[in-house]
Design a protein around this nucleic acid. Structure first.
Lengths: 110, 110
DNA sequence: AAGACATATTCTCGTCAAGGAATATATTGT
DNA sequence: ACAATATATTCCTTGACGAGAATATGTCTT
């Protein structure tokens, strides 16, 4: 899991853009209009998102339709999946770890 | 979905910390040691992660054991879930949208 | 209580990123 | 080709962030 993807999503305006594109692809102007962000900033944010592989462009007439790409989200999902196995283990492992945490010469009768 | 969580994870060192804690809780010093990051920076990063609700602390003796919290990850997962339904629809919806995208007076015989 | 150990905090500096405004660069439709 | 429209880019300023170094704040242990 690279931090680049998460960093791209970790900016309020960009997250809004992604949430908008979640519903349907949109051209730059309409994204700007719907979110109340000026067009240049939208272009910049889309640039970041594109470099991070989060979105892709499809030119249609004189506009550029931006849409989400599935890969980065699948990657995040896979990453999260590698956690899931551990949550149950974690619940008691925490106490286990707390107890066994390098208290070699110590006896717990405190 | 708030960008705060993603922003917290969108930093290389912090992501490494999270990946380490994925395996097991650890005290600050050991995190620093294992990742080769100086203790003060680790403390700072842990502070950010804690404020974002990604980790929590458990004082044990004179150290502070940091461990992951499940909630933020579940939140991300839920967010991703709201996408999944759309991926299949998206595949053809893209073309659909591209075609029907405000080309009212246009006929596609180009 | 003192000393040792673990962690947090402060300060400074350099860098990077974001917003605003203006402008450049297409690309289209007539 | 021209005017219009859509998007990208540049320049600037400002604020936030991260690393480094030094130091402060705890908190056991004896």
């Amino acid at each position: 899991m690279h931090s680049t993807t998460l960093a791209a999503l970790g900016e309020p305006s960009r997250l809004k853009i992604v949430d908008l594109l979640r519903g349907s692809p949109f051209p730059v102007g309409e994204i700007a209009e719907r979110l109340g962000i000026r067009q240049p900033q939208v272009s910049k944010h889309l640039g970041v998102l594109r470099e991070a592989g989060v979105v892709d462009v499809e030119p249609v007439a004189r506009r550029r339709i931006y849409h989400l790409r599935a890969e980065p989200f699948e990657e995040i999902r896979d990453w999260l999946d590698s956690f899931e196995e551990l949550w149950q283990t974690r619940l008691d492992s925490l106490e286990t770890v707390l107890a066994s945490m390098e208290n070699p010469t110590q006896d717990d009768t405190r």
